[in-house]
């Protein structure tokens, strides 16, 4: 800010006020179309969504109800969504509230696990690709496939590969004597491990694996770019000093990557947190995989309740705004 106003005042002193004003006028003219579009499709909907979240609107009332009647705003939708009594507004059912908290929990598990896994896979891939080997470029191209291909295709490939009856994974598994599994629709799979019985949330694990697979190339590209920027002399010097390959990885490569990994984690966390289509396409949020975005969609189209759907959307937006602020405040300045 300081430098900017210095520059501005310098301009003023040299060429008079009119140039500064002309610049500003031109800038606003150039920005106007973008601002209009963004106001229309982002800012106005976001604000309106807040209003909708306080109104009791059903999908079937949508064409006829007076949307601008702001006389009976209430917290009822939030009460219904979360199952908490708010300002005298009671929840209509406790089951819906339980579903919300369950979805919140699932969203966090899904987001954290798939983000961490995606970054670790990306790191692994970057370490493999860093040094030249025959066919490296083709290999690199294959690695990018899960990231660039349309999510609809990717989800269908997974659905077919994991199918209980015709899936290649189960076909191979049964040859090895493993039981055939419905990966995407099994809420809890009891497994005996070393005499202990553990229940695995199989469907959730599967969608986490999908998400990590879908986005590891993103982490891979960022980490590879950063890795290739580490000066070769550092490795040479470390080698002369007797550092082994593992030590060079631990004391040179990884410390250089920590800033990028932090940024990647937060970025991917935010994007995964508001991801909708991946789980929707894989299993529609069945078997314990209903994340918040799917719950918003289900409130709107399955339970046909616009108000509650908007209320959950506001809650999601608030959580994300906090995360976005963290991103802007702590991570971005370091990068630039």
């Amino acid at each position: 800010m300081a430098t900017q106003s210095d520059v501005a005042s310098g301009v003023v002193r040299r060429r008079g006020l009119s140039l500064k004003q002309r610049h500003a006028a031109l800038a606003y003219t150039l920005l106007l179309p973008t601002l209009l579009v963004i106001s229309l499709i982002v800012i106005f909907p976001m604000l309106w969504n807040v209003v909708l979240s306080f109104q009791l609107i059903r999908l079937r009332d949508l064409p006829t109800i007076n949307l601008f009647d702001l006389s009976n705003l209430s917290l009822k939708n939030y009460a219904t969504a979360t199952g908490i009594t708010l300002g005298g507004a009671e929840a209509t059912s406790t089951a819906a509230g339980r579903r919300f908290w369950e979805a919140l929990r699932v969203t966090f598990i899904y987001t954290i696990a798939s983000t961490v896994l995606a970054i670790l896979l990306g790191l692994w891939a970057a370490l493999v690709v860093r040094d030249k080997f025959p066919g490296r470029n083709i290999f690199r191209g294959f690695l990018l496939f899960p990231y660039v291909a349309p999510v609809v295709s990717l989800a269908f490939i997974w659905k077919l590969m994991l199918d209980k009856n015709i899936g290649i994974v189960n076909a191979m598994g049964t040859r090895l004597g493993l039981p055939s599994l419905s990966f995407l629709t099994t809420r809890a799979l009891p497994v005996h491990l070393f005499g202990l019985e553990v229940t695995l949330p199989l469907a959730l694990i599967t969608v986490i694996a999908f998400e990590a697979w879908h986005y590891f190339p993103f982490a891979f590209l960022f980490l590879l770019a950063r890795m290739q920027a580490i000066p070769e002399e550092m490795y040479e010097a470390a080698k002369v000093d007797g550092a082994s390959p593992l030590q060079r990885l631990w004391y040179i490569t990884l410390p250089h990557l920590s800033a990028v990994m932090g940024t990647l984690f937060l970025l991917r966390f935010i994007w995964t947190f508001n991801k909708f289509e991946d789980i929707f396409l894989l299993n529609g949020g069945a078997a314990g995989t209903e994340v918040l975005t799917l719950q918003i969609y289900n409130w709107l189209f399955a339970r046909r309740n616009v108000g509650v759907s908007a209320a959950v959307a506001v809650i999601l937006a608030v959580i994300l705004s906090i995360l976005a602020l963290i991103y802007l405040r702590w991570f971005l300045p370091e990068e630039e």
């Binding site: 909907p45 909708l52 949508l62 918003i296 937006a317």
Partner: peptide, 19 residues
């Protein structure tokens, strides 16, 4: 602009649908 880039599509989707 950066904030919008981080924002969930589905939150924008509902009011636009109503609209």
């Amino acid at each position: 602009i950066l904030l919008i880039y981080l924002f969930p599509a589905i939150v924008i989707g509902i009011p636009l649908f109503v609209f």
